[in-house]
């Protein structure tokens, strides 16, 4: 290990313990780590935006490719920043209208063709794939229908509609349980990773030098 790597491991270990201190309770060490994380992540994000958007799409486009059309979105971008100046904040509406209006237009055909129709096609498959698959297909149809009814608020959820939406809620809960299980596992996996780092990279390799 080089000196730089050793310093890096100590730094990472210190920050890891700082963040772990929140398990005990909210304290100054955690707050320090939290604010440090905030500053670093924003600094990193600025770099990403600069190197991956501003340089290729604006600076290089104007300087190298002589594509002066990008001056228009750059100007609209400056309008967005003018939101910080109350007297001309209304100019940012032009930029938001351009962005949101454009994406609304892009979204309608894209979600219909890319998501809505394929999802419907997968749901409404014929019953010709054997007993087990047909039973699964019935469960899918039942679940999709009842979940859609659960989110349909134009009818009051009473009597038959209430009963159907209750079945939909049951399926939603199974889905949330699945998501919950996966989330717990992902977090536990991260926790194991942090302990491995502390025990192996920090204590074994840096302190004990094994």
């Amino acid at each position: 290990m080089t000196i730089g790597e050793i310093i890096g491991v100590w730094l990472a270990a210190g920050l890891t313990l700082m963040m772990f201190s929140f398990i005990y309770r909210d304290n100054a060490f955690f707050k320090l780590g939290e604010h440090l994380y905030l500053g670093i992540s924003v600094g990193y994000f600025v770099n990403i935006q600069y190197h991956q958007v501003l340089v290729p799409d604006v600076i290089r486009a104007i300087r190298v490719e002589h594509d002066f059309w990008v001056i228009i979105p750059s100007l609209l971008g400056i309008f967005i920043l003018l939101r910080l100046v109350p007297s001309v904040a209304w100019l940012s509406r032009m930029s938001f209208a351009f962005y949101i209006g454009g994406f609304a237009g892009v979204a309608i055909p894209n979600v219909i063709h890319g998501y809505f129709l394929p999802q419907l096609a997968e749901t409404l498959r014929p019953f010709n794939a054997g007993l087990g698959n047909n039973l699964n297909q019935i469960v899918i149809l039942l679940a999709v229908f009842t979940v859609l009814i659960f989110f349909f608020f134009s009818l009051e959820h009473k009597r038959i509609v209430g009963g159907i939406s209750r079945i939909g809620l049951f399926f939603i809960m199974i889905s949330f349980g699945a998501s919950f299980g996966y989330t717990v596992m992902a977090r536990i996996s991260l926790l194991i990773g942090r302990f491995q780092f502390l025990l192996d990279d920090w204590i074994r390799q840096t302190i004990l030098r094994l």
Partner: peptide, 30 residues
């Protein structure tokens, strides 16, 4: 089975609802 059948179906129901809402909100914006 849980992931591929009831979970996928419930997610599909939610996604279909989200898509319909997205279309509606896009039309409202336009």
């Amino acid at each position: 089975w849980l992931l591929n059948i009831p979970n996928a179906a419930a997610q599909r129901g939610i996604i279909l609802g989200v898509i319909l809402s997205q279309i509606a909100i896009s039309v409202r914006i336009i």
